[in-house]
Measured scan of single mutants.
Amino acid sequence: NKEHILAQKEVLTPIEYEHYVKHLFDIGEITKELYIELSS
């Protein structure tokens, strides 16, 4: 869920976080809207 993803932002580097969010989007775990929101 969104809270879990945002928690990852605390422990990952910005680049790792971007890759993580992109991966979730690629596998269909999150919607495009959520992907855009989380990567901003």
Rank of each mutant, 00 (worst) to 15 (best):
T31D: 12
Q8K: 11
Y35K: 02
L12S: 03
I27Y: 08
E29R: 10
K9G: 05
N1V: 05
L34R: 03
K2S: 07
L24E: 01
L38D: 00
L34G: 04
H19G: 12
L12R: 03
I5L: 06
Y35S: 02
H19D: 04
F25N: 02
V11W: 14
T31I: 04
S40P: 04
E37D: 13
Y17N: 01
L6V: 07
L24A: 03
Q8M: 13
L38V: 09
I15W: 13
K22V: 05
S40H: 13
K32S: 11
I15K: 06
T13Q: 06
H19V: 15
H23D: 07
K32A: 10
K32D: 10
L6Q: 09
E29P: 00
Y17L: 02
I27E: 07
H23T: 11
I30L: 07
K22F: 15
H19P: 02
D26K: 12
T31N: 07
Q8W: 09
K32T: 10
E10M: 09
E10A: 10
S40N: 07
V11K: 10
S39Q: 13
N1Y: 14
Y35G: 00
D26R: 12
H4M: 15
G28M: 04
I30R: 00
F25A: 04
Q8R: 07
T31S: 06
G28H: 07
E10L: 14
H4W: 09
F25Y: 12
P14A: 13
K22T: 06
P14E: 12
E18D: 09
D26H: 13
K2V: 13
H23Y: 15
N1E: 07
L34D: 10
P14S: 10
D26W: 14
H19L: 15
E10F: 11
H23E: 11
N1G: 05
I15F: 13
T31Q: 04
L34W: 09
K2R: 12
Y20K: 02
D26G: 05
E37R: 05
E29N: 11
I36Q: 14
E29A: 15
H4P: 05
L12V: 04
H19Y: 10
L12Q: 04
E37P: 01
I36H: 15
I15N: 13
V11S: 08
T31P: 07
E10K: 09
E29D: 09
Y35F: 14
E33P: 06
Y17H: 02
I30G: 00
S40F: 15
E16R: 04
Q8H: 04
E10G: 10
V21D: 00
V11Q: 11
E3S: 14
L24K: 05
Y35T: 01
K32Y: 15
H19I: 14
N1T: 10
L38F: 06
I36P: 01
I15E: 10
I27P: 00
L6H: 06
E16H: 04
L24V: 03
S39Y: 08
N1Q: 12
E37C: 05
Q8N: 08
E3W: 11
Y17D: 00
A7M: 09
K32V: 13
F25K: 03
T13H: 08
L38I: 10
E37K: 06
A7K: 06
K2F: 14
S39I: 04
L12P: 01
P14T: 13
S40V: 04
G28V: 02
E16I: 04
E16A: 11
E29S: 07
S39H: 03
I30N: 00
Y17S: 01
P14M: 07
P14Q: 13
H19E: 08
I27V: 15
T31V: 05
L38H: 01
S40M: 14
I5V: 08
I5D: 01
K22N: 10
H4G: 10
L24N: 01
E16V: 05
G28R: 04
Y20G: 01
I27D: 11
S40K: 07
S40W: 14
L34H: 05
E29I: 13
V11M: 13
N1R: 11
Y20A: 02
F25T: 02
L24W: 03
T31F: 03
E33R: 06
D26Q: 12
Y35H: 03
E29H: 13
D26P: 00
I27H: 15
K2Y: 10
L6W: 05
I30E: 00
Y17W: 09
S39T: 12
L6C: 02
A7Y: 06
E18I: 15
E33Y: 09
S39V: 06
V21M: 06
I5Y: 09
A7Q: 10
I30M: 04
I30Y: 00
S40Y: 13
H23A: 12
E10R: 08
D26Y: 14
L6K: 08
V21I: 10
I30K: 00
E33T: 07
I27K: 11
S40A: 15
Y20P: 00
A7P: 03
Y35I: 02
Q8A: 08
G28L: 04
L34S: 06
T13V: 05
G28C: 04
Y20R: 02
K22S: 09
Y17M: 02
E3G: 05
S40T: 12
P14K: 13
T13K: 07
Y20E: 01
L12F: 05
D26C: 15
I27A: 15
E33K: 07
S39K: 11
L6E: 08
L24P: 00
T13C: 03
Y20N: 01
T31A: 07
H4I: 05
I30T: 01
H23N: 14
I36L: 14
T31W: 04
K9Y: 05
G28S: 05
E10N: 08
K22E: 10
